[in-house]
Nucleic acid binder design. Sequence first.
DNA 1: CTGAAAGCGCTAACAT
DNA 2: ATGTTAGCGCTTTCAG
Lengths: 323, 323
Amino acid sequence: MAATIRDVAQASGVHVSTVSRTFSAPHLVNAETRTRVLAVAENLGYRPNRAARALTTGRTHNLGLIVADISNPFFPPLIKAAQAHARARDYHVFVADTDEDPQVEEELIQTLTKQVDGVLLCSPRLSNRAIERLRADVPFVVVNRRVKGMPTILMDVGQGARLAIEHLTRLGHRRIALLSGPGGSWTSGEMREAAAAMDGVDLVILGPNAPTEQGGLAVAAEVIASGATGVLAYNDLVAIGLIEGLYERGVRVPGDISVVGVDDIVSGRLNRPKLTTVAMPTAAAGRMAVDLLLQSVDDGATPTLITLETGLVVRESTGEARS
Amino acid sequence: MAATIRDVAQASGVHVSTVSRTFSAPHLVNAETRTRVLAVAENLGYRPNRAARALTTGRTHNLGLIVADISNPFFPPLIKAAQAHARARDYHVFVADTDEDPQVEEELIQTLTKQVDGVLLCSPRLSNRAIERLRADVPFVVVNRRVKGMPTILMDVGQGARLAIEHLTRLGHRRIALLSGPGGSWTSGEMREAAAAMDGVDLVILGPNAPTEQGGLAVAAEVIASGATGVLAYNDLVAIGLIEGLYERGVRVPGDISVVGVDDIVSGRLNRPKLTTVAMPTAAAGRMAVDLLLQSVDDGATPTLITLETGLVVRESTGEARS
DNA sequence: CTGAAAGCGCTAACAT
DNA sequence: ATGTTAGCGCTTTCAG
């Protein structure tokens, strides 16, 4: 059995509370005693039990981070940024994957509730109602979804969509296909709204599609049939899958059809053609989400709304429309 | 404040221990009482506090899963399989990313120690000595690294390397480059050993390389200079980066140089050319790792060694050597 | 079948 | 500066 605070106390001839203090409030204990206790602790391999500590302090110093699909390369930069940022604040981030399943998502939150001080919900598939209900149990920060009255980080994908479509129209494309994402996706809704509000484009909406390469691959035939020459895909994965699907059918990108993705994942830069895409500020979002969450853990939830700008990165998957 | 067991006890007019039993040993409590307690609990939104429960039972019902780099697509299938498998056994898996940093890895393990019942160490960068020291604190299962006396899951990448090189030689390649991985990588060592032991190949070892597309991109010039016509890359990411680097330099794959990767990640199938690769049984490894870990949590560590077969998937990135 | 009491490892007033 | 005491939320003997 691992050493407890009691073992250390006994072995160093002080009371447990003194040992406790040497770890949680070192300045309150005599330097001499402290060194001795520390030495004994080191010797016994003692480490404070965070779970037990949490029971009295009410602070676990853990955060939960829930994502819909860990294998989507969109998330890792966000996760890494959040973990690094949290670590610097002496917090630890636990990541969990919901497999795009709202039910699993809800169970996960329940499980996490008492083991973390707050949870980061990234692109949740859960209904707003469910989220609002759950918020009684644990502080939340929501990323990429609008839930009123809750601290939220949004990446302005609507603006990104406008940028992308303007880029496409400037290249002479008139008929543009929007490949929407999964039903519950806020991002997808934003894109659709932004696109629909634009003048001078002949918009065709295809989907919902799975937010994966498979999703893009599967919709390729439909895209061709639609007669669109410009495409804005739900994300880079879909864009890459689509390009592959088009390629297999002898349709060239950007020669025949121009494709724009969303996210700016690493492999988009290594795809051939290199992907034109709407860059999402994921790392920044991860950091700000942690800050916001920590803040609402300390001071109660302030329903702040932070909107992060997106930008268009033009690479090789878009070009002039054939005349 | 969320409802505690005491609130439920009070509101349903029974002792806390009865409430406790209702949740952890339902068969020991009168059906009638049980329904009443359950109703009250539901009503109050009561959920047992797992951390507190852990304090008395010594079981958190959590597992930790540590990976070197969550953005490497090799890991997600393993993570997902482990999470799903664990969930079915009423365990939850917390994932953490070490950023390929042994120091961070060690801290993470320390943090996790008391909050989980066991830790899955995937492709650790930590030294064997450090791992052996840490094992006193928490049960481990190690994946893709040989640590003597510890439960271990290995994917037989040595065999995979042999398969790949045989494939290459059969296609007429004589001079073959092995792109090794990061210094601390067990996998990389296995591949090198297997390759070195093969007759009739003129082996050149290039590296260490970062286990990423960047790593592959960066080594492209060296590969060309080496005069090798066949390449076995540390993993698919490196292979994809390499192909891109070669392409930029006007070298064709598989026309001029054949490339084999390792892992069989999804995007390898969508790359152009589709990647020939050594398929790693990651999902199976994730499931077995959970089983092994749970077993060693229950019965103490049995130093089992499980070796999983790998296989070669031939696609389009390999072809006949130019004569 | 249910209640009483002790205790898991730790912290937080309150004394001294 | 250190010791005392109580208690966080829960489980687990042990009685009854």
